[in-house]
Write a protein that binds this DNA or RNA. Structure first.
Lengths: 71, 71
DNA sequence: ACACGATGTAAAGAGTACTTAACATTATAA
DNA sequence: TTATAATGTTAAGTACTCTTTACATCGTGT
């Protein structure tokens, strides 16, 4: 049993017309960090996930969600 | 400007009558990890924060929240 | 053709989340 | 007293988040 985390950062960012750069600045991280999260390279910390959700004016659960799966 | 994260894990766990051990099992981590989070030693990942919130049947924001500060 | 903004991607290093293992204290119960 | 469950705490090690630097591609505009 392995849980994965899905996020809608790329979609929501595009919907708001934000560049990776500006989202990164608002969240206090680098552009590469945003790119890596969108790509699914790794999961953000709670702090960063909360900041990103703040930028989108959404609850964290609306941006990041657990998908339970097997193996 | 430095942001900190506060959590109500210890309070909510006590309210539910859960031990660190059982909460840890439900969240898929060790007892020491729960203890460290309650103590404020470090911040959990989003995945773990979501799992813990799940155990309490609460939104993540009701368990973990950013406190913005200066210096 | 040339420049520029946005994105994709990769690698090295710093810092941190989490595990495992250990030992200690306290409270409750047999 | 002896045992057992719950918690506090620490240390070493592994895995991962995030930064910095760098180079490449694509699309738009001049």
């Amino acid at each position: 049993m392995e849980d994965r985390l899905f996020n809608r950062v790329k979609e929501l960012r595009a919907r708001k017309g934000l560049t990776q750069q500006t989202l990164a600045q608002h969240a206090g991280v680098t552009r590469q960090t945003i790119a890596a999260i969108e790509k699914g390279d790794y999961l953000p910390s709670v702090l960063l996930a909360l900041k990103i959700s703040d930028v989108f004016d959404l609850n964290l659960e609306d941006v990041f969600s657990i998908k339970k799966g097997w193996e």
